[in-house]
Write a protein that binds this DNA or RNA. Structure first.
Length: 296
DNA sequence: CCTTGAACCTGGGCGC
DNA sequence: TGCGCCCAGGTTCAAG
């Protein structure tokens, strides 16, 4: 499910509720997510105050007062939702009884805020997501972050950086951009969209965008622009809601209405003046959507 | 080094 | 209504 814009949308949804709240209980209903949760997870978290919420690439980071951080990766189908204690019920009681919770609500954060109790439920049907706990000061040592590339929005990503990484590479652009060590946070949707915007075929080899001298050719400059723009626009739109991604309040993102190519097989290419149609081709086990007429 | 394919897991959609 | 197949936003690991 979630690429960087969806995770950022989740972070923004959770932050107003979680920041400053105290974790009164951590309910681990199903500790066998993609990786087992730490044995002492609940013990180390309960009683702590949440200092703030962050994000790195596709990882949500929940900073606790004692210097530890909870890491959460949503895999393909993970989502969080917020439940305030029901106003119409007895104060402090939740409108939804536990029996009405979904069978894929695997982890529940019970929070105490000045206004009352709140529950944050982590739902993940496929269980490709996972959580972990680490010392914030040693974040770079965590396996999830070691070797991770720069964020696509921000100053770290520019054409010179990608030129250095792409030089001499025969690897297709599609898989190069999906590589989290190259750029962190892109996934199948936004790679397809960025390549369409830049007019580049997903099958073109990355090295062809770099000159002999190792400088970025024009298409690479356009590609960097396209990546930054598509990610920024998607964040602005609250991410893309296809199957699973919902915002923390249950509402949908709407960037999927802006897809030019992703999941648009057979549609006419939306580039002005282009006569092509959108194709789907499996590349490295993933669907690439692109227009063979204007993406070269 | 490289690339591809399978694996992890559940559910939705479609054709029959 | 049901079955079987294909597909899915991610990541890792084995095999060629």
């Amino acid at each position: 499910m979630p690429e960087l814009p969806e995770v950022e949308t989740v972070r923004r949804g959770l932050a107003p509720v979680m920041e400053g709240a105290r974790i009164t209980q951590l309910e681990l209903r199903r500790p066998d997510l993609r990786f087992p949760l730490p044995d002492d997870f609940a013990a180390r978290v309960e009683g702590q105050r949440i200092a703030g919420l962050g994000r790195r690439a596709k990882y949500l980071l929940i900073d606790l007062d004692d210097g530890a951080t909870i890491l959460s990766h949503l895999g393909m189908s993970g989502s969080f939702r917020i439940e305030q204690a029901g106003q119409s019920d007895t104060p402090g009681q939740f409108h939804h009884e536990r029996s009405k919770d979904g069978k894929h609500d695997h982890v529940v954060f019970h929070l105490q805020r000045p206004e009352g109790a709140v529950r944050i439920l982590y739902n993940d049907p496929r269980r490709f997501g996972f959580m972990d706990l680490f010392e914030r000061a040693r974040m770079e040592e965590h396996p999830s972050f070691r070797g991770l590339g720069p964020e696509p929005v921000g100053n770290a990503l520019d054409a010179a950086y990608l030129a250095a990484r792409f030089k001499g590479k025969a690897q297709p652009l599609k898989s190069a951009l999906l590589d989290q060590k190259m750029i962190a946070g892109l996934g199948n949707i936004y790679v397809c969209e960025a390549l369409w915007r830049a007019g580049l075929s997903p099958e073109r080899s990355a090295g062809t965008l770099v000159s002999e001298k190792g400088t970025a050719k024009k298409p690479l400059v356009l590609l960097v622009e396209a990546i930054r723009a598509v990610i920024a626009e998607a964040i602005e739109a609250g991410g893309s809601s296809l199957r699973d991604h919902i915002r923390t309040d249950g509402s949908l993102g709407y960037f999927q209405h802006s897809f030019a190519v992703y999941d648009q097989e057979g549609e006419a290419c939306r580039k002005p003046g282009c006569e092509g149609h959108i194709l789907r081709r499996v590349q490295a086990g993933r669907s690439s959507f692109y227009c063979s007429a204007c993406q070269r």
